[in-house]
Structures are given as structure tokens and as C-alpha cells.
């Protein structure tokens, strides 16, 4: 007879580039007693079994057992809402990593069910959305009023993320403009966005990104919220076509940036925050930290993004402690030449 592990019981759906990292981070946490990793791809599960931590085991199926404390959903975008709803009904705190518009809407709509069960359902706790929402919330503390939020990302995580990136560029974008939703063509609206090094300047375009759906409810009165992603000319030319070749197992270093514009002490004020990391690593750090953050506190029941998370400063500190340290763009040169 084995003794029951102490600490929270966690289930991670998805054993891809992001899910596997989340499982390892949860396994490393002393507040988690057991981790169960599930994936529909049994071959992949078998392949990663040797890379899991000592508290982690492999499970199967979408059902979540009563008594599960935390469920993190890191499956392919489009498959997360069903799993999240099952976890909500089992009474677990749920963290999802979706970056798809339709699924974000479905998850936000599941907030009613989450309130009924008294649990928190975090929508889009990845790199973007996720870290971007959190940076917007923390950055907004320096404003009297935030008028505009513009987020952008560069890079992709695992193959599922790359496919979603490809689809997003050829689909309709959704922006919040002057108090109403606006649909714009994906791949339009080129803007040169400056990301933390080594990504630096990249041309970014509108795409089917769900960030505005998560940021607008968290910032009542905001005039404009837009989301863009970096793309090359080849990305834009081939976006309407099927992907011609298999995506890489994992992309290189990516980045996100958040630009806040508003008023402070009666004057216009702009803050630009960002981060650089491999997107799958960044998403895993944010999702795992969010799960651990919520385990230890009374989170309001319902569905929301990370811009509405309680105690956001502490969560950002936890994320930084795991190596995902945010940066701030300063309006002066930091090079030696400029100092001299």
C-alpha cells in the first residue's frame, strides 16, 4: 500500500512543447503532490515518459476526477474548451493556454458554469495572450487612466502553435476601437514593432488573435485595443495556402511587447513592456506559475484572462523567478556610445 501524496493534485492536458514543460514545473513545486499528464497521442506520451518528474504519471481520457485541485490545458487550440468545462464541473481550478478567438469566446462563456461551481477559469494563460495581459495589468498601475493597449508577438512555440500562427494570419482580426468591436483583414495594418533583444524590430500585422477579448473586459473605458503578430513577406504570401511543410518541433527565440497609452497626473503617458523567450517556454512558465499562484489563494470564481488575476504583481514576480523576466523600453539609448 502506497501513502497518499501531500499537496495539490494537478492534471496537465497536452504533452507537447508547452505541456511537458508545465508538467515539469508543477512537479518541481513543493505545493503540488501529484501531476498527471494526458495526451491523445499515446506514442508521444510514451516518448516523453522518461522525461517526467518523480511525482508525475501518465493518464488517459478527458474526464477529470473529483478532488483534482488544478487542471492546466495545453492542448492544440480548438480542443481546450471541452476539457476546461469538464474540469470546471469537477470543481478544479482551470488554467488554459488558448490563443484562438472562437475558443476564447467559448471559454469566457463558460464563466457562468465556473461561477456556479465556485472555481476560477483562467483563459489564455500563455505567452500571448497571457504574459501580455499580465504586463498590461501591472503596467496600468502607473496610469490614472489607460486609453489604449497595443500588444504584439514574434515567434512560435511547438508545431500546434505554428499552425495556429499560420491560420491566424489569413483570418479576420478583431480590434476594439472607440468603444466597439471592429473586424479587419489578417495580414493588414503593417507596423514596425520593437521587441526586446535579440528579436529587435519586426514588421507586425493584424491577425486572428484573441487578446482584445481578454483585455477589454479588464480595462473598462479603454478606447483602443489591438493585437498584432510578426510575419515575414513569405508568411503573408503563403498565409491563405495550406502549410507546405511540417512545422519545426519548436521555434526559436520569440518575444512579446505591450504598449500602454493613457494619462498620468494630467499628462499623456506611454509605457512599453516586453519579454523575450522561446514562446513554448514562456507559455509554460506563465501557465504553471498561474496555476501555482491560484492554488494558494481565494481567486474569484468565473472566467477571465490574466489581466483580471488577483495579486498580479506577485504572479509577475513568480514568473520572473522562473527566468521569464520582463523588460521595459526606456526612451533613451542604453549603448556605451550614447553614455559616452
Amino acid at each position: 500500500m502506497t501513502s497518499e501524496p501531500t499537496g495539490a493534485a494537478a492534471v496537465v492536458f497536452g504533452a507537447g512543447a508547452t505541456g511537458l514543460r508545465i508538467a515539469r514545473m508543477l512537479d518541481d513545486s513543493p505545493s503540488v503532490g501529484s501531476v498527471e499528464v494526458r495526451d491523445t497521442d499515446l506514442e508521444r506520451l510514451g516518448a516523453v515518459a522518461s522525461r517526467l518528474g518523480p511525482k508525475t504519471r501518465i493518464g488517459q481520457g478527458p474526464a477529470v476526477a473529483e478532488g483534482t485541485d488544478l487542471v492546466v490545458v495545453a492542448t492544440t487550440a480548438g480542443s481546450q474548451a471541452v476539457l476546461a468545462l469538464a474540469a470546471v464541473k469537477a470543481g478544479a481550478t482551470v488554467v488554459t493556454t488558448t490563443n484562438e478567438i472562437a475558443e476564447t469566446r467559448a471559454l469566457l462563456a463558460a464563466g457562468k458554469e465556473a461561477r456556479r461551481h465556485g472555481v476560477a477559469l483562467v483563459v489564455g494563460a500563455g505567452y500571448m495572450p497571457g504574459l501580455t495581459c499580465l504586463l498590461a495589468r501591472v503596467g496600468a498601475a502607473g496610469f490614472d487612466a489607460v486609453d489604449e493597449i497595443h500588444v504584439a508577438k514574434a515567434g512560435t512555440g511547438g508545431p500546434a502553435c505554428a499552425r495556429q500562427h499560420h491560420r491566424a494570419l489569413s483570418s479576420l482580426a478583431i480590434d476594439w476601437r472607440d468603444g466597439r468591436w471592429t473586424r479587419r483583414a489578417g495580414g493588414s495594418g503593417r507596423e514596425l514593432c520593437w521587441f526586446p533583444d535579440p528579436v529587435a524590430g519586426r514588421d507586425c500585422y493584424r491577425a486572428a488573435l484573441p487578446d482584445a477579448l481578454l483585455l477589454v473586459p479588464a480595462f473598462p473605458g479603454v478606447d483602443r485595443v489591438t493585437a498584432r503578430m510578426a510575419a515575414t513577406r513569405r508568411d503573408r504570401l503563403t498565409a491563405p495556402l495550406p502549410m507546405m511543410r511540417q512545422p519545426h518541433p519548436e521555434g526559436g527565440v520569440g518575444a512579446v511587447r505591450v504598449e500602454l497609452r493613457g494619462r498620468r497626473r494630467g499628462e499623456r503617458h506611454v509605457v512599453v513592456l516586453g519579454s523575450q523567450a522561446k514562446p513554448a517556454q514562456g507559455a509554460a512558465v506563465v501557465a504553471a506559475s498561474t496555476g501555482l499562484h491560484l492554488l494558494g489563494r481565494e481567486a474569484p470564481a468565473g472566467a477571465a484572462g490574466l489581466a483580471s488575476v488577483p495579486d498580479p504583481d506577485r504572479l509577475l514576480s513568480a514568473i520572473a523567478a522562473l527566468g521569464l523576466r520582463p523588460s521595459r523600453f526606456e526612451g533613451f539609448a542604453l549603448t556605451h556610445d550614447a553614455v559616452a
Binding site: 520593437w194 526586446p196 533583444d197 524590430g201 513592456l273 516586453g274 520572473a320 523576466r325 520582463p326 523588460s327 521595459r328 523600453f329 526606456e330 526612451g331 533613451f332 539609448a333 542604453l334 549603448t335 550614447a338
Partner: peptide
């Protein structure tokens, strides 16, 4: 941009 730079928080 011709000036400015990123600084870790």
C-alpha cells in the same frame, strides 16, 4: 527607433 533600449525590470 533611433534612440532608446530595453532594460530588464
Amino acid at each position: 527607433p533611433q534612440t532608446g533600449g530595453w532594460r530588464e525590470l
